[in-house]
Design a protein around this nucleic acid. Structure first.
Lengths: 139, 139
DNA sequence: ATCATTTTTAATAATAATTATTAATTTATA
DNA sequence: TATAAATTAATAATTATTATTAAAAATGAT
């Protein structure tokens, strides 16, 4: 997802474009490692020491609300994903790293619809050990 | 999963069988609605007013650790599932209820294994609106 | 460019879920 | 029954996240 697209969508919905939001967007949109609010905050603080953690939460939550980001809820905390294309995640139980995977194809029509009226979304998490951790352990 | 099986496994692993653990097991194992630690605590308190929330957390976490229960991490908190057979979950975005679904069949072999060394587990969450909420809204 | 309106920010307090601590009690076993 | 080890209840501590609010900044109209 591109920054300009996000900026336009925000503006279009009445959000104001502040420097803080741009800093956060810049960092978030180019991240590959599914950052938490705090990790974005810590990185940004190096260059913008007055940025506030609330502002980071506020911006990330807004992006999720308007469909420009995804929240990943794991055991310990919330991670954010700027990739809104359908895809699933692999979580390494050793190092905690979250990897993007191809979308897992699921036949939603085969689901028992006894309880379901409408489907909006789908999350697939696969847990295991990543190759990196296997190699390290093998040493 | 049956209580005796759980008791045996606990004992076999060196855990002691306390009345509190039995109360929690009794309530948890017959629950269908994926309770949180707090909801189990609140229910138990009616009959066992001296039970402690810590004890409930302790027991539920132990059950998860030894593979007799599953934790479901949603936005707000952790829910527990005594059903350890493979299955997926439908979460109603309106009422928050969690429904059990048949296991979604996923071809794990088709996964890009660039990052994956071993797979231990799989969580599938489907989000949407349940029939109950649709009916209520329609009134 | 300035003004008026609305939103956002930073700082911090508050909340909520969960875990840690610990003295007293209980379980399991010899 | 005595002993060692684990568990309990109570509560403090921790951690992630949200709420509050006065001051500052962004937008849009004049």
């Amino acid at each position: 997802m591109k920054k300009l697209f996000a900026i336009n969508k925000l503006r279009e919905l009445g959000y104001k474009i502040t420097p803080q939001r741009e800093y956060i967007l810049d960092l978030f949109l180019k991240s590959k490692e599914h950052p938490s609010a705090e990790s974005i905050y810590n990185t940004l603080k190096e260059n913008f020491p007055y940025i506030s953690l609330s502002t980071v939460y506020n911006t990330l939550n807004t992006l999720v609300d308007i469909g420009l980001a995804r929240a990943i809820f794991l055991e310990d905390k919330t991670y954010f994903d700027p990739n809104i294309e359908p895809h699933s995640h692999f979580v390494c139980e050793h190092c905690g790293k979250i990897y993007d995977l191809e979308p897992v194809s699921i036949d939603l029509k085969s689901l028992k619809t006894e309880y379901i009226s409408r489907i909006h979304n789908l999350d697939v998490y696969i847990y295991g050990i990543c190759k990196e951790c296997t190699y390290i352990k093998a040493q």
